[in-house]
């Protein structure tokens, strides 16, 4: 079953002329009961996309369907969707316990026992007011709501911002454990893929509001390969292929990252000619795919 479907989705902020095009021509399908990573750099359009899926923002072009409905201002989509980010706010007069009670009234699947147990584990004082929490603690509390609500579509926008590393690990583990017990569709946006990749089934990588890649994480790990060695031999091997990343070393050595579609024999032959093959971490790959080709080195080369 398809939960989210976008076709040539676009979103402009402000007037058409001089406005900002946050999302341009994005097309994808997200299946039910998966954890999907929405990966992209700062300003890539992750939050805008999530806010459109949550029904907060109205697309300015293309088509977007969530649970087979247009999500903007749709109550049925809102009832099945929870958007969790660090600017999630609640009335000043509410204590954390009040908020948990309210969430339970709004979301029929809300697991109050789990929420309380998680709050206790993370040492949250439920008598405290939400706006008195520190940034990290606020993120932790919001994440607890996200987990315990068991919403059919849960959107986490950079949920771990401000959390310390042990809380982050615990949060991801709690999310995974709960997801296994209560499968649902979860979209997790992050600019740190390495942190979440163990959790994810699919990733959607976006750059400047457009789709870069959308594939299972397992395929992403096999997507590219690094070739290091004498410039001539490496260049010969990579000829005619799109170069995702390039670094030059001294003594005529070069490091190139290209798509991994070589035959094993071809690679074996290259190795005999001094070309070393290096697996590419998914994090680095995403940076190569969304960055300028020469990387930061380019800036120094020009000056």
């Amino acid at each position: 079953m398809i939960v989210v479907e976008a076709k040539k989705l676009g979103k402009n902020y402000g007037r058409v002329k001089g406005g900002v095009q946050a999302i341009r021509g994005l097309s994808f399908i997200m299946e039910e009961n998966k954890i999907i990573g929405l990966i992209g750099r700062n300003g890539a359009g992750k939050t805008t996309l999530l806010k459109m899926i949550a029904g907060y923002l109205r697309p300015t072009g293309g088509m977007l369907r969530v649970f087979e409905r247009e999500p903007f201002n749709d109550l049925t989509v809102s009832a099945k969707t929870l958007f969790v980010d660090d600017s999630m706010t609640f009335p000043l007069s509410f204590t954390l316990a009040d908020i948990l009670r309210e969430a339970a009234r709004f979301f029929p699947g809300f697991d109050a026992k789990l929420a309380e147990a998680l709050a206790e584990y993370f040492s949250l004082n439920l008598k405290k007011s939400h706006h008195h929490l520190s940034k990290g603690t606020k993120s932790t509390f919001n994440a607890i709501i996200g987990i315990a609500s068991h919403c059919p579509l849960t959107l986490f926008d950079e949920p771990t911002s401000g959390m310390d590393s042990s809380v982050r690990k615990d949060f991801y583990r709690a999310l995974l454990k709960d997801y296994i017990q209560h499968p649902r569709t979860i979209i997790l946006s992050s600019h740190l893929l390495s942190e979440v990749e163990e959790l994810l089934e699919d990733i959607l990588l976006i750059h400047a509001g457009a789709e870069c890649l959308h594939l299972p994480v397992a395929d992403l790990k096999e997507y590219a390969i690094g070739l290091r060695g004498p410039a001539r031999n490496v260049g010969e091997l990579a000829q005619g292929r799109e170069i995702l990343h390039r670094e030059e070393f001294g003594q005529g050595n070069i490091y190139l990252v290209v798509k991994k579609n070589f035959s094993p024999e071809r690679l074996e032959e290259a190795r005999t000619r001094g070309v070393e093959t290096v697996p590419i971490a998914t994090d680095d790959l995403c940076n190569y795919l969304t960055g300028s080709k020469g990387g930061i080195d380019d800036v120094f080369r020009r000056n």
Partner: peptide, 26 residues
């Protein structure tokens, strides 16, 4: 499966109580 409509009045009633509580200071 996805088409079950959400009851507008039921949600509005929940929101009403939520707002009433949060603005009780008034």
């Amino acid at each position: 499966m996805f088409s079950a409509e959400t009851d507008l009045w039921a949600v509005a009633a929940k929101q009403y109580l939520y707002k009433l509580k949060s603005h009780s200071g008034f």
